[in-house]
């Protein structure tokens, strides 16, 4: 089965090369969607060779938007399984086989990587843990996402071609995580979570989401209902 990794990247010139090298041994093709970076991410990716498919957003439109572009690109080149993975290297690419195995076996349509099944995330800040608990409650009460979902904001997931065509998520920015979870868990797709290892390095925490971004996510989810 043709496995395509979609890596949305925004200002990741320092880490993208390592991420691509790590991911490449577990998938057939890699699509990097550069979300309007201006820090040389493009040059770094192109220098790796033409086998890495590079799609560039002319403007920064957010991670959700980059994933949609990546999904459509992957479908066009005939992907049968699409893997979403962050560019900053916080996800261990060795988790990919465990993510796609249920898809290959045909028992599930989409598999989410969870930081909170089994192994404890390395170096995760305490405030982040508290925030993720709040996100879980918000998801349960306002979005109807079951509390059995252990990771409300996971950036690593794998889905079949069929699933990717039946998750019409519309959020451009960080709210897409919750939106995808809602569409999947409240729909008829077969889903599951598998444990993934996450490394919180100083750089990934610094560049990653700030705690105040949680409010933005809530706001976009609320406005998104009407738009």
């Amino acid at each position: 089965m043709k496995v395509v990794a979609v890596i949305p990247a925004y200002k990741e010139s320092e880490r993208i090369t390592n991420t691509i090298h790590g991911v490449s041994s577990f998938v057939d093709t890699i699509i990097v969607v550069d979300d309007g970076s201006c820090d040389g991410t493009k040059e770094k990716v192109i220098s790796l060779g033409p086998h890495i498919i590079f799609l560039e957003h002319a403007l920064n439109r957010g991670q959700g938007a980059a994933l949609r572009t990546g999904n459509e690109g992957a479908l066009k080149i005939g992907a049968e399984i699409i893997v979403h993975i962050d560019a900053d290297g916080q996800h261990d690419p060795a988790c990919i086989p465990a993510l796609i195995q249920p898809l290959i076996q045909g028992t599930h349509d989409i598999v989410f990587g969870s930081r909170f099944l089994g192994s404890v995330p390395i170096g995760i800040p305490k405030t982040r843990l508290l925030l993720l608990q709040c996100a879980k409650s918000f998801n349960a009460f306002f979005m109807g996402i079951p509390k059995t979902v252990t990771d409300p904001q996971s950036g690593i997931r794998a889905m079949t071609r069929f699933a990717s065509m039946h998750i019409p998520f519309r959020q451009d920015r960080m709210a897409h995580c919750s939106e995808i979870l809602q569409l999947v868990t409240c729909g008829s797709l077969r889903w599951k979570e598998v444990p993934v290892d996450v490394r919180y390095t100083e750089a990934s925490v610094r560049k990653g989401q700030r705690s105040t971004d949680a409010l933005k996510i809530v706001w976009h989810l609320l406005i998104g209902i009407f738009a």
Binding site: V33, P50, I53, F54, L55, E56, H57, A58, L59, R61, G62, A65, R68, T69, E72, G73, K76, I77, R170, D172, I223, G224, F226, A227
Partner: peptide
């Protein structure tokens, strides 16, 4: 929000033209 979505759609179409 609607304008932003339309903008994203345009950016996406433009990006997909780079597919080999």
């Amino acid at each position: 929000e609607r304008l932003e979505r339309q903008l994203t759609e345009m950016v996406k179409r433009d990006a997909l033209k780079q597919l080999p």
